[in-house]
Nucleic acid binder design. Structure first.
Length: 444
RNA sequence: GGACCCUUAGCCAAGUGGUAAGGCACGGGACUGCAACUCCCCCACCGCCGGUUCAAAUCCGGCAGGGUCCUCCA
């Protein structure tokens, strides 16, 4: 299994730290708003990564944080005249609801900044003790210049960064690149610490949480490419000082989603919120249809294709499910023997093994759909259909695509058979009536 | 201004040296009592110009267009 490691910028064999186990962490949202479909890309993708690892039998520990202390949260809470924590709690719930609607698992470890304050403060203190951080008037900054290989992840050179810097120079800092670990403030929600009354900068939380949850270098750290610098670079800087490792062995960065070629972001305002978006499963399908490292462009025209493609998946899944159900021919424990199906599964797995190439994995899925549709009208084919159904379910489970359909009741099965015989005897008025009944019952 | 990336058919999208996967749309067939679904066939000299090589969409250089980061943003 190969993963593109953005730390080394190359495809590498995945070797877990502990055989059979995977520890992964993905940067989560700052909860001050509903998420848009661009926000959903990393969530859906890394959920798929998790699903694939689990399908291969790995014991996956998956953590993703909620940043519930932040200037934007404070501002929004002030605007709405409610406590910060009430606001963040509301948007955490909304987030979990939204990602659940995209069939992302929500049973992962969800650390929050407010619950990690002491860890964060201790972490900052440890940096100070090692003289990689300094306090000025209650603020605490990380001393970037003291670290030799700062910039290794994002391939940046400290000198170039300084010369190209357009950051407003904070006179208090030793160096313009030094980043804030703790900010003294009396505005909004704040916390007591030995440095001052204030709140933490956003770069320490992830690394303090990872330290507490995993206690060692993790296997995979994920997030959007926009977080590579400075956020992930800063995580690494702090971790190098405290633990002498780079947080994660494999760094994975997903490309961004843009809107008609303009980056979708809350500040531009060109957003489609997940909660308002009608096509949940097609959205998941769409997000996985392009390789995760490539940028993805949303337009109504191209999205409609994915709506159609998902409909086809839905139709095919339902038809094979129905066929097996009506014949009472489900066998979940059947071993797949059909060569064509096995080759397709193999193709699917090889592509997933190759840096989670979901675009090509979906191609394998499409081949399977064609196989099902080619075989579904052939007689005496239930064994093969059952195998194809199991393969279909396997792929859909990994991609996290669901089609809702339930088993047929006995009485409905009888009606269905009546309908079929009425058709056979060309009694079309009876047949149409029976079909109508079945449609009303939701069987067809 | 600096660093980096991308450009494949009408649209989306794989492919990283050996001669262009797949999907959607279009067109042509088939199946069908009607409808829906479905199946088969058809559909590309890989932004432009040069170079390296027996061989390039794939490597190198230039040009054009688009993007990301350097600043809050997944």
């Amino acid at each position: 299994m190969k993963i593109y490691n953005s730390y080394t910028d190359q495809l590498e064999d995945f070797i877990p730290k502990h055989p059979g186990k995977v520890g992964m962490y993905v940067c989560g949202p700052t909860v001050y708003n509903f998420i848009h479909i661009g926000n959903a890309r990393p969530v859906v993708f890394f959920d798929t990564v998790r699903r694939y690892f689990e399908s291969k039998g790995f014991d996956v520990t998956y953590a993703s944080n909620f940043t519930d202390v932040d200037d934007k949260i404070i501002q929004k809470a002030f605007e709405e005249n409610i406590p910060e924590l009430e606001l963040s709690r509301f948007y955490i719930d909304a987030f979990l609801k939204d990602i659940a609607s995209l069939n992302c698992k929500t049973d992962y470890i969800q650390p929050k900044v407010t619950e990690y304050m002491q860890h964060i403060i201790d972490y900052i203190q440890a940096l100070i003790d090692k003289e990689y951080a300094y306090i000025i008037e209650g603020d605490v900054y990380f001393r970037v210049s003291k670290l030799k290989d700062y910039g290794a992840l994002s391939n940046r050179d400290i000198d170039e960064l300084i010369s190209g810097s357009r950051v407003n120079v904070n006179e208090l800092k030793e160096n313009p690149l030094d980043f804030t670990l703790w900010k003294k403030t009396s505005e909004g929600i704040n916390f007591d610490s030995q440095f001052s009354e204030g709140r933490p900068g956003w770069h320490t939380e992830c690394v303090a949480m990872i330290d507490d949850i995993f206690g060692e270098e993790i296997d995979i750290h994920g997030g959007g490419t926009d977080l590579k610098f400075p956020h992930h670079e800063n995580e690494i800087a702090q971790s190098k000082v405290i633990h002498n490792h780079r947080v994660a062995k494999y760094w994975m960065h997903n490309g961004r989603l843009s809107m008609k070629d303009v980056k979708m972001s809350k500040s531009i305002g060109n957003v489609i919120l997940v909660k308002d978006f009608e096509y949940k499963m097609p959205l998941r399908y769409f997000l996985l249809s392009t390789h995760y490292r490539s940028p993805l462009n949303y337009s109504e025209e191209s999205f409609l294709m994915y709506v159609k493609e998902f409909e086809k998946l839905e139709n095919t899944y339902k038809s094979v499910f129905f066929k097996l159900d009506i014949e009472d021919a489900f066998d979940d424990n059947k071993e797949i023997q059909n060569e064509e199906i096995l080759l397709t599964i193999n193709d699917f797995n090889e592509n997933m093994d190759n840096d989670f190439n979901t675009a090509n994995a979906i191609t394998a899925l499409q081949a399977l759909l064609k196989f099902v549709n080619q075989n579904i009208r052939k007689p005496n084919n239930l064994e093969i259909l059952n195998e194809a159904y199991l393969a279909l379910k396997y792929m859909m489970d990994i991609l996290g695509l669901v089609v809702s359909i339930s088993r047929i009741k006995k009485e409905d099965r009888a009606i269905y058979k009546e309908w079929q015989s009425a058709r056979k005897s060309k009694d079309f008025s009876t047949a149409d009536g029976l079909r109508k009944t079945l449609v009303e019952k939701g069987v067809l």
